[in-house]
Nucleic acid binder design. Structure first.
Lengths: 210, 210
DNA sequence: AATGCTATGTGATGCCTGTCACACAAGCGG
DNA sequence: CCGCTTGTGTGACAGGCATCACATAGCATT
């Protein structure tokens, strides 16, 4: 069955029996690009494992400001969706599909069951938390210590890594992700272009260095 | 035995059998204030559970800059110490004792063993990751969206929550934790004093609002 | 080709905060 | 009581970045 083989390919570290359960109880959802998949304010009742496409996770304050945190790609699960009972204070996290996305959703009650039953699930969950924790630390470090030009470079490199040398984003999109303003991003990117790092097109740019 | 009862009090969610194992294989360490307990660059071979005192966790870049992330207090474990194989790229996290600290250290191999054996340990580890993840998100939100005055207020409140109304920190200490400069902190605190939020003393301040 | 919409380029200006320079104040040891 | 050390107060200045105001350019539709 193609579903099974795809699962095994994307999540190679799980037990055979668990794959079967995943196929049985999991629901495959197809989500168009640009959909808000979850917001942490609201209770979450499923674990989400990405099968295809890219999800971006970003933080919001209440006043329209955003900050990009990281991407979730095929073979990864959403750590936040595992944080079932999120105490909502001020911090808000949103996950949104960047491309069309296919994900496997599993009701949260299986999470506990499987944690006890399958060692591999266990490790998978721990691994997910750990890698997300590391990504977050990385993000903190960027914002705390780096100026806009360095943060922009880091951000663009992540996009290139995720989507290839040719990335479709407007300066405004980028400014939103970095909680900056369009003009600042335009100026800095112009400088990067002069230095031969990128080519700027309308609605996109191209990474031409390294 | 007083160790056992203290453990139960601080970590009430664990299984009886596990307490016994903890007492048997765990080593109690007393650490004087100001000691660097771990740095993420180096491999970690123990899980640390705080029994007494306060540990602060902060991020460093390579050039002497720091940013305070959160406190670890009695009844909590160090999530980073559970991240055994930390890929060292640029981000560095350091844990340092703020006060004299007593902690129980457990060799890392038990972590895996217990994860399979004890459901409660399991939940404890997950809970630890989850709450640390949330704290990190909170920190990201502060740095990304707030100005120095608001970040300072947030920071001071956290200190007050941890240590009581009378907090022993110099302006320089605070500036280091917020990756700012002493003069800026002094000015902002002076303003807070004028607004009746705090009293400033030499080497300390006192929270007098709320 | 003309029109219009949206993306991008660029100067002017102001606020926040980091830095430098130095004055003052609190506490400690002789 | 005096001087030293360390913390705090404050002005002047500079750089980074947000914002405002337009100018220009790219692409789609007619």
């Amino acid at each position: 069955m193609s579903d099974l083989s795809k699962l095994k390919e994307l999540f190679p570290e799980l037990e055979d029996e668990l794959y079967n359960e995943l196929i049985q109880v999991g629901v495959v959802k197809e989500i168009p690009a640009g959909t808000t998949i979850l917001q942490v304010a609201q209770p979450i009742r499923t674990v989400m494992m990405v099968l295809d496409g890219v999800v971006k996770l970003y933080q919001e304050d209440g006043e329209g400001d955003e900050y990009f945190v990281y991407h979730i790609e095929p073979g990864q699960a959403c750590a936040v969706s595992m944080v079932c009972a999120y105490k909502q204070e001020k911090s808000m996290v949103t996950a949104k599909s960047v491309t069309d996305v296919v994900m496997l959703t599993v009701p949260l009650e299986y999470m506990d069951k499987w944690l006890q039953k399958y060692k591999s699930w266990h490790y998978f969950v721990i691994k997910t938390y750990r890698s997300r924790y590391e990504e977050l630390l990385r993000t903190v470090s960027e914002i705390a210590f780096r100026n806009m030009d360095e943060r922009l470079e880091f951000y663009l490199k992540r996009q290139v890594k995720q989507f290839g040398k040719h990335v479709k984003l407007t300066h405004q999109d980028i400014a939103n992700d970095l909680n900056s303003s369009r003009e600042v991003i335009s100026r800095l990117m112009k400088k990067m272009e002069k230095n031969g790092w990128i080519n700027i097109h309308r609605n996109s740019f191209e990474w031409i260095r390294d």
